[in-house]
């Protein structure tokens, strides 16, 4: 392509996009700086932070000593591993099942599609979870959302793109449906599966509302629910008690703890995000092709 000259439009466009990037990134940068800053200096400071004010790890120390953050991480990790495995297995089975030409293909598909359009609301589902004895168990955060129908559509679309000949050849060789699904289909659509692992995984990582509905004991709270208590409610009082004596200091350290908490809870996502980015994007494309 031939070189074009840079116009005013290019300049304005670039400036706006740079500003947008700053708006997207700066909150995190501010929080990182603030989390290392001296609480006293931070409380006197006005305006943007361009570097940490002094240096202290007091906030992080308080966060790492807080047991509930670690139990929260534990629950979230459990949901991530067990929950995502269940999600993927069931979505695979469902997608395979409704893409076969069985006599029940149509009624089964309708049964699934109906749930996209009509939902019963939270109260009846809550009562079901309760009557199954799932209330206040970790499975209550996993089983009620075991299959996401949008993800199921993505999986089914991927399976439909597998060449029919491969499957026919396998049938000739006497392969069972289990062999076809797990030995032939699964390796062929592994990039789609990877995308769905990421989607389900992110959903487990971020989920707190379901936990709010179904979990009562604090030692089973997932990370996000713990964070809500610390960051939205003000549960930092308990965390500061051992470290400082006066009330004002406790308030200031409380602020630093909040910043440190945000960082501790966001670092895993920020760390893996650059590696995963292209997969996420690919997933959106797959979803978009279907509409």
């Amino acid at each position: 392509m031939k070189k074009k000259k840079i116009t005013t439009f290019d300049v304005v466009n670039t400036i706006i996009l740079i500003l947008l990037m700053i708006v997207c990134l700066y909150p995190f940068i501010y929080v990182i700086f603030a989390s290392f800053s001296d609480p006293w200096a931070l409380s006197l400071h006005k305006g943007l932070l361009l570097k940490p004010l002094g240096f202290t790890l007091a906030g992080y120390r308080a966060v790492f000593e807080n047991r509930s953050i670690w139990t929260g991480y534990g629950t979230t990790l459990f949901n991530l591993v067990i929950g995502t495995s269940i999600n993927i297995l069931l979505t695979l089975l469902a997608a395979y099942g409704i893409s076969r030409n069985t006599l029940l293909k149509k009624p089964l598909t309708i049964m699934i599609v109906v749930t996209m359009f009509f939902t019963s609301g939270i109260i009846p589902r809550f009562l079901v979870v309760k009557s199954l004895g799932l209330y206040n168990t970790r499975m209550a955060m996993i089983l009620p959302t075991a299959i996401n129908v949008f993800n199921l559509i993505i999986m089914r679309t991927a399976m439909e793109s597998v060449p029919k000949e491969l499957e026919e050849a396998a049938v000739m060789d006497g392969a069972s449906h289990f062999t076809i699904l797990f030995k032939i289909f699964t390796p062929l659509i592994k990039s789609t599966i990877a995308v769905l692992v990421l989607y389900y995984g992110v959903a487990h990582w971020n989920q707190w509302y379901q936990a709010l509905l179904y979990i009562q004991s604090r030692d089973k709270y997932p990370l996000q629910l713990v964070l809500r208590e610390i960051l939205i409610g003000s549960a930092t009082e308990g965390m500061t008690s051992g470290a400082v004596d006066s009330l004002g200091e406790s308030f200031m350290l409380g602020e630093t703890i909040k910043y440190a908490t945000i960082i501790v809870a966001t670092v895993p996502i920020l760390a893996i995000y650059p590696m995963l980015q292209k997969h996420f994007v690919k997933g959106v494309m797959v979803g978009a092709v279907k509409g």
Partner: peptide
Amino acid sequence: HNKQVYLMLIPVVAYFIIFHYIPMAGVQI
């Protein structure tokens, strides 16, 4: 030909019935 497919679909159907259709019946409250 498809009994294995139906076997695979048991947990799937169970999921939709338990967490979607029974709550729909529960709407009667």
